[in-house]
Amino acid sequence: MFELKGRKALVTGATGGIGGAIARALHARGAEVALSGTRREALEKLAGELGERVHVVPANLADTAEVEALVPAAEQALGGLDILVNNAGITRDNLFMRMKDEEWDAVIAVNLTSAFRLSRAAVKGMMRRRFGRIVGIGSIVGATGNPGQGNYAAAKAGLVGMTKALAAEVASRSITVNCVAPGFIETPMTDALNDKQRESILGNVPAGRLGTGEEVAAAVVYLASDEAAYVTGQTLHVNGGMAMF
């Protein structure tokens, strides 16, 4: 079950805590993986750890030209593209009334618009090959909101709506489009929280702990697998019960 042997995958934001775990998990199931991110050195390091069946395709998703060039580069390196994981994301938190246009625009551009452009580029080849898996990494915040994250919550909720629209369009071509929405996950981002913040967050998590990148990655592996062929337009929440839908 959940074999990905022979599948070709592109993961954006592969140097992050969750993105790295996703790349490792897809690779471990047998996929050939193209790692994307802004830091070439960190990508090379991860590629070195994974060994075979790995390519490095750096891109800054804040730059439109680099976004447009990424899928063709990955398709060339991999010889096709079966699985696209739109994982890259940034935060520019600020109270709503203080939020600058630039903070809003930057988060929408990287977290939502790049996912649109990459999906548009990838789906063309997937239609031709009559197989595809697009997985967007959303966030619990896209469903519940969060103070200080108006831009981030909008982008993540937008990803869910986009996922449903695209899923409806391409379902007849054996292409599925889904989201995975993590809750609080152990990453460098959550490491920065102090004990008091941690405690207050955990008070809202029935599982009583933060999640791991591997637990998010397992959800991505599932949605990317042949077994998930009949699951499309969905958001799979991985949040220890923090919010239930």
Partner: peptide, 9 residues
């Protein structure tokens, strides 16, 4: 409409 896109491709 999706068929017409595919035909063009």
């Amino acid at each position: 409409s999706l068929d017409t896109v595919e035909l063009v491709m």
